[in-house]
Design a protein around this nucleic acid. Structure first.
Length: 106
DNA sequence: CGATTGACGCAGA
DNA sequence: ATCTGCGCCAATC
């Protein structure tokens, strides 16, 4: 059975480099419009178990919210390495880098 | 099986 | 514009 987690994971892994997605978007694509927190918890717990590009996941403001200092530093570095430009305030241009499959699946 | 967790999102002040 | 609080839902422990 594909759990919400597995679905979310699939979506996350489907995000191309240089793009990012918000927790809310993933949750919506996974079938739970309000399940943003599940995505968060999912990454927190499963990122070590699954080879998820968790660094492509940011909050709705396109900002890194990680609780771990090293984690946020890593994410920031990885995103820049993929070509994602981050503002001085550490915010990402979601309008540019947001991966929106909803538009692709007519 | 029951309670806790959780890297969010949004509304209200 | 910033800050606080509440809700949400499913997996994990």
């Amino acid at each position: 059975m594909q759990t919400f987690t597995e679905t979310a994971i699939t979506i996350i892994r489907n995000v191309p480099p240089g793009k990012v997605m918000t927790y809310g978007q993933i949750a919506r694509q996974a079938g739970s419009p309000r399940g943003a927190r599940q995505v968060a918890r999912l990454l927190h717990s499963m990122s070590s178990k699954y080879d998820l590009p968790w660094h492509r996941i940011v909050n709705a403001q396109g900002k890194i919210v990680l609780s771990d200092e090293e984690g946020r530093y890593t994410q920031h570095a990885l995103l820049e390495a993929e070509g994602v430009k981050i503002g001085l305030n550490g915010q990402i241009d979601l309008e540019i880098y947001r991966y929106n499959p909803d538009e692709l699946r007519s």
